[in-house]
Write a protein that binds this DNA or RNA. Structure first.
Lengths: 135, 135
DNA sequence: TTATTTGTAATAATTTTTATTACAGTACAA
DNA sequence: TTGTACTGTAATAAAAATTATTACAAATAA
């Protein structure tokens, strides 16, 4: 399991708490304590999903693309969401086995269901509310 | 992300569909198409959680430890559940940063919440109902 | 007593994740 | 117009996690 969601959430939290001021990827990498290129990659992805804006050049950096009240944790999770919520084996189940032949379809159906519940839960909290919990 | 949950679910599905008959780890490995030692390890874990019983020796193998109607998908997930539902970065956020200092606690709180919702959802389906979907 | 099976350890191979280096492009400001 | 401080991204290396393989002791049925 990778750390993309916590990192994306950490980034978004920093940007929210900066209250409109720009932050550099180096600064954020320092807070997260992770390589700055990884932060820039994640930022790049967040920009693609229109949650973050950037400005190149001197005094450039990153800001939220819209107000924190309009960004839910579900939207943040969406940017890093894996194919399979509860994990994916890299095996190809035996198609000659009556169970093996069908299991992937049923797991996939289950995952759609789980994902819906998860997104609903994450949709309950917006970034502003999440950050309001910090002292 | 690893494939433990799908593998555990595949195992449980096979045992359920065997209707009380014993299955060997080799047979299950053939259906899942994964190494038999990995299957035995997962079975070992399922036994520890009292969902599966085993019998060593010739004609030995594995069976469900109780009726499939009394086993929920939540109980199966419980046996393989990772520390952090939505992933864990291996970094140690900067304690000198006001956000970094607190983020892990807030992520942890969020995860407890998410986990509760997830377990509730998975608790809705028992193994019998899951397997009933197979043709 | 032989064959088959679980249980587990040790190790190797593979894959995924993260870090590092490098550099082109942008923009500000002196 | 030149230097400086950024973003954006590619290429590669290092580290960590996952899965496969080999080996073998212990159990038990026939």
């Amino acid at each position: 399991m990778n750390g993309r969601f916590p990192i994306a959430l950490h980034i978004m939290t920093l940007l929210c708490s900066a209250e409109g001021g720009v932050l550099s990827s180096e600064y954020m990498a320092g807070s997260i304590n992770v390589n700055a290129v990884l932060v820039r990659k994640e930022l790049s992805n967040l920009i693609k999903h229109k949650l973050v804006s950037s400005q190149a050049g001197k005094n450039g950096g990153y800001t939220l693309a819209r107000s924190a009240a309009q960004i839910t944790l579900a939207q943040i999770y969406e940017t890093v969401k894996p194919e399979a919520v509860l994990g994916q084996a890299k095996n190809q189940p035996n198609p000659a086995c009556p169970i093996g032949k069908q299991i992937n379809q049923h797991i996939s159906d289950l995952y759609i269901d789980i994902d819906r519940a998860l997104m609903q839960k994450l949709g309950d909290t917006d970034l502003k509310a999440f950050v309001a919990k910090f002292d």
